[in-house]
Design a protein around this nucleic acid. Structure first.
Lengths: 259, 259
DNA sequence: TAGTGGTCTAGACCACACG
DNA sequence: GTGTGGTCTAGACCACTAC
């Protein structure tokens, strides 16, 4: 819990750790950010729970409240924490409704957004292909958990997902667990496996439906579909999911905001 | 240049304008944000130019530097301003290289990102259809400027864009202006027409290439393409462009980050 | 009434760019 | 050296929530 500013008092410079080894400037609030991040990563505070008040953290870290405040501000901007005036600061969770649409960008062309139903088709252990291994930073042949599922909007099959998860983390995942769970998959992951998805990269292409997917989505073979390849990351930019989603876009579209 | 906090000194509450009419709380820095935004919108400071220093603005608005700082922080987070330590705060511009890829999400499947060449196929006056009018908040039949262009990566035609612009703003746009310009279209818009795109919403679907687009992109009819419908907004959420882009995704993909 | 986050201030000092 | 943004502090007060 000791941080560099203790030394900084004397030499008036904030440097990481020892205050002399690294030549780069590291602001105090960055160090506080790192400490809070560590608490999140190690599960000291769990999703949905409150972290200590700014005043408490300032005392614990021996810095001013304003410095803690700036650290929390940035973590809140990254959606890792959620501030609630008068109540406290909370660890972000995929249970909150506002989180749902950040990782599901499919919107109906007409009408209001709606939650899809999920139907699991397959759940088994497998070996990582070279592609999956590369994306998840595993070795080819490492154990993975493979899921195949369908998302249905108003009963219409709309998305077919193939999902690959590192076996070391998700060893215990079974069809039973999946089916007993209500809420999003990422909510299940954070509740049952202590792994929170905080960011994802998606690569989107247009491809013709092959025979298998055509059957699942009930469209003719060759129908243009969105092919959405996603790698999702947890704390520390650790990749913990690869999924390939095939999206029907006759009644929905992928919505994105550029800014 | 007078703001509500002058009154706030007495009643210790910051309220918009008169300090009594509106029942909602409006922080000082929000009011400063609005004032800076007005300067941007009215062209008091132009893209690429520096705005006054925090110290100057604090004096001008009669608030502390910290309050100006918070206002600028938020505008910088929205990419309307760019801070440069030691130099000043600058109006964001589409001329900066880092801006380019914020509004062009097409990346090569292999290899480094590259800038496309642009080829104008058509530039004419037209009347807004009901769909275009709705999206641009015009009346059906209002004058619009229509552009059709191709983007080529390494000489390969990859994107076909149909672009609709409000006639009132872009009346003077001609093929000559377009062709003489190097740099992005949005750079041209902000330089020649004083209109800066600051945000855009995109709706993405997978569609088969029709005969016309197939010819332009040199693909067989029916080839799956991304259809990207974009509405771009300027200051004050004013829609100022609608474009429909058809993207080949055999060598490129649309890249997106969820967070 | 107490505790939380949110706003605002005033001032000191640091890092960076430029002449 | 001067001016810019960046960090950090200490303290006052406001708005919101809960008890």
């Amino acid at each position: 819990m000791k941080i560099a500013r203790q030394e900084a008092r004397t030499d008036m410079k904030n440097r990481p750790e020892t205050g002399a080894a690294a030549p780069t400037f590291m602001p105090l609030y960055e160090q506080i950010k790192t400490l809070i991040l560590r608490g999140l990563q190690e599960g000291e505070w769990r999703p949905g729970q409150a972290i200590p008040s700014e005043h408490d953290l300032a005392g614990r870290f021996r810095v001013s409240q304003g410095t803690v405040r700036k650290a929390i501000d940035e973590l809140a901007a990254e959606h890792l924490l959620v501030r609630r005036q008068g109540k406290g600061t909370f660890v972000a969770s995929h249970k909150e409704p506002r989180m749902q649409y950040r990782f599901l960008r499919l919107m109906p062309l007409q009408g209001e957004p709606e939650y899809p139903d999920s139907r699991l088709l397959e759940c088994r252990r497998a070996r990582a292909s070279s592609e999956v291994a590369r994306l998840l930073e595993l070795k080819p042949g490492d154990g993975v958990v493979f899921l195949r599922r369908i998302l249905l909007f108003k009963g219409e099959p709309t998305v077919a997902d193939d999902i690959y998860l590192p076996g070391t983390i998700f060893r215990g995942l079974t069809a039973e667990i999946f089916n007993e769970y209500r809420g999003s998959l990422y909510n299940l992951f954070e509740m049952e496996f202590g792994t929170r998805m905080i960011r994802a990269d998606e690569n989107i292409r247009a491809v013709p439906a092959d025979a298998e997917v055509a059957l699942l989505l009930r469209v003719p073979r060759g129908t243009p579909l969105l092919c959405v390849d996603r790698v999702a990351y947890s704390y520390g930019d650790r990749p913990v999911e690869f999924r390939r989603g095939m999206y029907r876009t006759d009644r929905h579209c992928y919505r994105n905001t550029l800014s």
